[in-house]
Each structure stands twice: as structure tokens, then as C-alpha cells.
Simulated assay, not measured.
Amino acid sequence: MKPARWPVDQPEEGRLLHVEPREGRLTDARVADLPSLLRDGDLLVVNDAATFPASLLGRTVLGERIELRLLSQEPDGTWLAVLFGAGDWRKRTEDRPTPPAMPAGTRFTVVGLPVRVVEVLPPSPRFLRVAFEEEGAGLWSALYQGGRPVQYAHTLAPLSLWHVQTGYGARPWATEAPSAGLPLTWNLLLTLRRRGVRLASLTHATGLSSTGDEALDALLPRPERSDIPAATVAQVEATRAAGGRVVAVGTTVVRALEGRAAMNGGRLVAGESVTDLLLGPGFVPRVVSGLFTGMHEPGTSHFALLQAFCSRTLLREASAHAEARGYLGHEFGDSCLLLDA
């Protein structure tokens, strides 16, 4: 499936493949048709994490060019990060040169910020826990002034931060955009509300999708933090009690809701937590009825996640159908709705 190379001007006109797992039916539609595919009383849950500039160019003390991509902030204020050699997004991650060795204690600079390697983590010498000398507002100011959004070689030109924000982004928790929500304009969300579809949100710290290092990519997604408001829990419970369906916008929302429920014997509880839940074949969702997401090809980690909602056979059929009809993949691509009618 060809990747979409740039954000579209009218995301509601993007293509939408409706997959009905129980009937095995595939229907071509548009994102603008989403209100007619959901019911009065359904609940659409979005991830309102804003995307922060997590791609940081810098140099070693010897002047060697490097790139540090932040993965997540730890409770003690340190960061998990992935190191890349010289270059930028124009070269595929798997083709980037090997970065210099950075043992614990090594110091370097990115976007004008001094950084210290706290720890090198398995399974790759590129996987680091680092500490910035700057903290708080000073750190975030430097990140936003000098950092760039994480992007990959299929894109046409340098992305601005606003290209990777959903219309409802709030706290800057996302290393990469929770991209399933990019097509959801405020006009579309208001139309959904008028049709009786309820809207709720949570915040989930979306991490990196690829590093180009096979051993490291096998660990993705890493444990990620979520914050589920009490109002969202109440809406989920009311929707299910009334026979409505809970539809997640993106696999991060599924991971947040199902991970939180799994920690509490199937009961959804409000608050902040970290989940290491991995979705895939054999996983039976307890909270979520359906999924609105991007187009994902067989062999990708996201494709495996979708098998919690649909059989591998039907997903492969859907992927072949989409490719034959010119659907586009990746973060700015077309959409898929996995939901029985």
C-alpha cells in the first residue's frame, strides 16, 4: 500500500474502509460518512494527547552529528530515547548510519541542551535513558524552540508541528501523533454529536512507531502512560449499560481502556497508570466494541494489534481490497472502521 506523503487539505474526504468482522463484509466509504456508520447512543473515545517536538538534532563532544528521538519521560524526570547517527528524516530509519557509542556518563548536546547518558538499555546500544540539565519550563521551551516533530522518509518535506496535531490535542504527551484522529475535524465531531453519538477523551502517551533497529522495534510499543478521566469512565459505563457501542479512535485508546480494565479485573477505573498490554490475536476486548484507525499492512506491528478485533484472514482481505483500490497508508493516509453494523 502506498504511503500518503503529505497531510490532505480536506481530511473528511479521505477514504474509509468499513470492515464488519462478524459478517466479513467490506464497504468503501468516506470519513465524512462516519456519522451514518455509528448509532445514536454510541460513544466515540479519542486520545487528546498533543504531539510534542521529539526529534532533537545535536552533536557529541567531538562534534559528530547525531539525532536523539525521545520516547517517553520517566517518573524520575529522565527520558527514554533512541539515538541515531548523522542525517535526518530524509533517509529511512533502517538506512541511517550507526551512531557513536554512548556509554553511561557520556555527555552531548541537542538543540542547545546539555544531556547526560544515565544508562544504556537492552537490547540495543542506541536505546538510552538520558537526563537533561535543564528541567521544567526551560526544558520544554528549548524543545519547542529547537526540536522537530518525528517524521519518516515517505513524507515530501519537513513537517511543522501543527501538521501532526489533532484538532482536540491537549497535554503534550505524544512522541508521535495519535494519527487515527487526524481526519476528525471539528465539523465532523459536531455532526456526530448532532446524530446522538457521544464523545469522550483520555490522554495516552503515544510512543515511537519505528527505530530501524529490528531488536528495538520488536519491543514496540513500550509501556505507556494514560490518564482516564472520571467523566470518561462514567460515559463508558452509561453507554454499555444502555446497549451502545464504545468505539476507540486509534489503538492507543484501546490500549489505554483495555489496559486499565485488565489491571482491575475487567472494571474500568479513572486515573493515571502505565500499561504494558499488547493487543493481538486471541485478545478479547472487555470495554471497546470497535475501532476507527488508519490503514495498516500485514507485517506491521499495528496490523497485529488489529487482530484483537478481526480475524487475520479478513484483515488480509481488507488490506488487499484497499491496495487494489488505491487506499493510502501511514499517518496521513486513509482510514478503516472495524465495527459490526
Rank of each mutant, 00 (worst) to 15 (best):
V284P: 00
G294T: 12
Y152Q: 10
V120I: 10
P229C: 15
R222C: 11
A131Q: 15
V120K: 08
T191S: 08
L37T: 06
S201W: 09
A180E: 11
P53F: 01
E64V: 12
D9N: 08
W140A: 12
R116M: 10
T185P: 04
V8A: 15
R260D: 02
P221R: 02
A104D: 06
A32N: 13
R222V: 15
V61L: 13
G85E: 01
V253S: 04
L278I: 08
T252R: 06
L219R: 11
P100V: 09
L277S: 07
T211I: 14
A308Q: 03
L314R: 06
A322D: 06
L56Y: 13
G212R: 05
V236F: 07
V197T: 01
A318H: 07
G299Q: 05
A101T: 14
E214D: 15
L189H: 00
V115Y: 03
L34S: 03
L306D: 04
D95N: 14
E64I: 11
L37E: 04
T211R: 14
F84D: 09
F108P: 12
G167P: 05
M295R: 10
E135A: 15
P178A: 06
E135M: 09
F84L: 14
L305H: 02
G259L: 13
T51C: 08
H302F: 06
A137W: 07
G136K: 13
R90Y: 04
L17Y: 02
T206Q: 03
E94P: 00
A174E: 04
G333E: 03
P298T: 07
V164A: 09
L156T: 15
R30E: 07
S311V: 07
F292I: 01
L199C: 02
L208W: 04
T191L: 14
R90I: 09
G169S: 15
Q73S: 10
D42Q: 01
E20I: 01
N264G: 00
A174T: 07
P114T: 03
R5Y: 02
V111H: 08
R39A: 08
